[in-house]
Design a protein around this nucleic acid. Structure first.
Lengths: 132, 132
DNA sequence: ATAATCAAGATTAAATTAGTCCTGTTTTGT
DNA sequence: ACAAAACAGGACTAATTTAATCTTGATTAT
């Protein structure tokens, strides 16, 4: 079980923005900073903007900045924006779940899912601020 | 982030065996019981056998049984056998990690990975035993 | 106006996951 | 010994997901 490259990119992108507080960074600039293909990064930033994690500015001198304080953005926020924590397939095939006794497993996946979400939620981006 | 179908199958398979203590179940029988394609299930059982979770018996009247008490088999054991918890890509691209300041993220993924493994490890299969 | 920059859908390419096929080996029962 | 009932394991195919690019359009500072 591993995270997608896209999620890794998204997190590195947010870290990049955390380190440039108050600045508006262009896709070009971020792309060079974190070594991610420009067009692919553009898609990721759209998702982050859609989730309210970053704010976009269009037009010349446009770009992106964090939408709120890094302490108020956590790893779960990013995951939700890019690849929600689902865990469990059996939750999605109710027909099978109701017929087969095997789906005593279902509630276990639900618990695990919630605990994984909690683990991600307690990790915020304050730790990545530029040193004093 | 979701588990593979194969992992779901593997867990349902182990639950099936938990419910038939002392029996040797054939692939045919398990396959019908949990509604998983026979040949695919065969591959999964090979992995579970390789991980020492089930014991296989070849030849006529052959089949599979649990290798140990259900209380001593947990969800992490199954994951390790089918799709290890890795989480983190950045751990696997050291070149990038050492060059880019973005990889202050690396240790976070390592922590998350360990905690997810712990969550899976505390869930054993005793709960799926047939009722009294 | 125009150059810089984001928006968004369509498309392609690569990788992973899911599943099948075939051939061989082991074991039980006659 | 031999046939039938299983598992073993590699090669192969199909489906799905992930990764990335292409194209065209909209917005904004100067």
């Amino acid at each position: 079980m591993r995270i997608k490259r896209e999620t890794d990119y998204a997190i590195r992108c947010v870290v990049h923005l955390v380190r440039r507080p108050g600045e508006v960074a262009s896709i070009e600039e971020i792309s060079k900073g974190i070594l991610v293909p420009k067009k692919f990064l553009a898609k990721i930033l759209q998702k982050l903007a859609g989730a309210g994690i970053v704010k976009s500015h269009r037009g010349a001198k446009g770009g992106f900045e964090l939408a709120r304080d890094p302490a108020l953005i956590n790893f779960l926020d990013i995951m939700e924006a890019i690849q929600p924590v689902e865990m469990n397939i059996c939750a999605m095939d109710d027909r099978l779940c109701s017929l087969s006794n095997a789906c005593a497993v279902h509630p276990v996946w639900v618990e695990v899912r919630e605990e994984v979400r909690a683990i991600l939620a307690i990790r915020n981006f304050a730790r990545f601020r530029a040193g004093p």
